[in-house]
Each structure stands twice: as structure tokens, then as C-alpha cells.
């Protein structure tokens, strides 16, 4: 990861001790990136700010419970934000209450649209390159755009069952490749 200079672990420890300046430093370090992650999923800047707001509250309150043996501090900060955004979007999706079948009929027009991205350095990018473009798009639309199975099916014009199977097999392939 490209931020070796910022000590996330020390920052979370300082937050746990109640040092407000540490949270401020984390905000200055990562707020724009976290907001970017939240906005891609929430698709709305104001909603993304609500999510990042809640994320910082959770980071402050949860810093004491963070265990560095279980994962990287930076990863935890991003996970907290991403999962808040995903919770919001999945909850929204349930309220819209579109059935899988209904969405399948919506996805009548096959689309060749793939996730546009430039591969970067890192194991996960190398392993993504081994996936077929359509399958890679499923993974990226899910992780980066926060799309559900049915939204991806609709977007790619691919049957829902196929999308579900692709994602399941792609995850297994990634895990094997990255092992």
C-alpha cells in the first residue's frame, strides 16, 4: 500500500487513549480517499459524507477494541467505512424490494460494458488479470461500486444465476491465486 509514512496503528492507539489530535490526523490523511470509497458505493456525495461521518465516530469509539494481531490498522479503517456504506445500500435495495426475477427481466438487453480500470501493482491486480474480463467486472462492480448480484446482472446483461456463479468461482480463484 502506498502510505508507509502514516502509522495507522499508532494513530488508532492514540485514539483509544482519547487523543483527539490523532483522529484529526487520520482525517487529514485519509478523509478524501474514504469519502471517495463511500461515494462510489453510495453514488451521492451528501450520503457519502454521512457515511464517513459515522465511520469516524465508529473509528473513535472502536479504536480501543482494534486488535493489530487480527489485521492491518489501515485495512480496518477502510473496512469500517466500506461496510457502513454497504449496509446503507443493501438496506436501500431491500426497501426498493425488487425481486431477483423482476430484475432478471429488466436485464433483457445484453451489455458488453465492463468495469474500466487500469491494473495497478499488487497481488490482487495480478490475480484479477487472470480472470475473464466479464468475471473481473463482476468483482470490481461489487467491491468498488457496491453493486448487488442483481444490479451487476442488470448492468452486464447477464442472467442473475450466472453472475452469482461467476462471483463465487472468481472469489475461489482469487483466493487460490493469492495464497
Amino acid at each position: 500500500m502506498p502510505e508507509p509514512l502514516f502509522d495507522y496503528e499508532a494513530c488508532l492507539l492514540a485514539c483509544a487513549r482519547g487523543e483527539q489530535q490523532a483522529l484529526r490526523q487520520l482525517y487529514e490523511q485519509d478523509c478524501a480517499r474514504l469519502l471517495g470509497v463511500a461515494k462510489r458505493i453510495a453514488r451521492d456525495t451528501a450520503l457519502a459524507e454521512d457515511i464517513v461521518h459515522e465511520a469516524f465516530i465508529n473509528i473513535w469509539n472502536g479504536a480501543g477494541g482494534f486488535d493489530p494481531r487480527r489485521g492491518s490498522a489501515r485495512g480496518w479503517v477502510y473496512s469500517v467505512t466500506r461496510h457502513l456504506a454497504l449496509n446503507v445500500m443493501r438496506k436501500k435495495g431491500r426497501e426498493v424490494a425488487l425481486s431477483d426475477e423482476h430484475e432478471q427481466t429488466l436485464a433483457a438487453e445484453p451489455s458488453t460494458e465492463h468495469f474500466e480500470y487500469r491494473a495497478r501493482s499488487g497481488k490482487v491486480y495480478q490475480c484479477l488479470e487472470h480472470l475473464e474480463p466479464a468475471r473481473r467486472s463482476c468483482i470490481l462492480h461489487a467491491y468498488v461500486d457496491g453493486l448487488s448480484h442483481s444490479e451487476i446482472a442488470q448492468k452486464l446483461g447477464t442472467p442473475l444465476g450466472t453472475v452469482k456463479a461467476w462471483i463465487k468461482r472468481s472469489l475461489a480463484a482469487l483466493r487460490e491465486c493469492m495464497a
Binding site: 478524501a32 469519502l35 485495512g75
Partner: peptide, 16 residues
Amino acid sequence: EQRLLPLTELAEPVAP
């Protein structure tokens, strides 16, 4: 989380 974390870089930063 660790495996997929680098993919967060694909989201453009947004100024708060």
C-alpha cells in the same frame, strides 16, 4: 479484507 483492500484505490478521492 486484506486481499481486496488494494481495490479501494480504484475509487477517486473526493474532497470533503
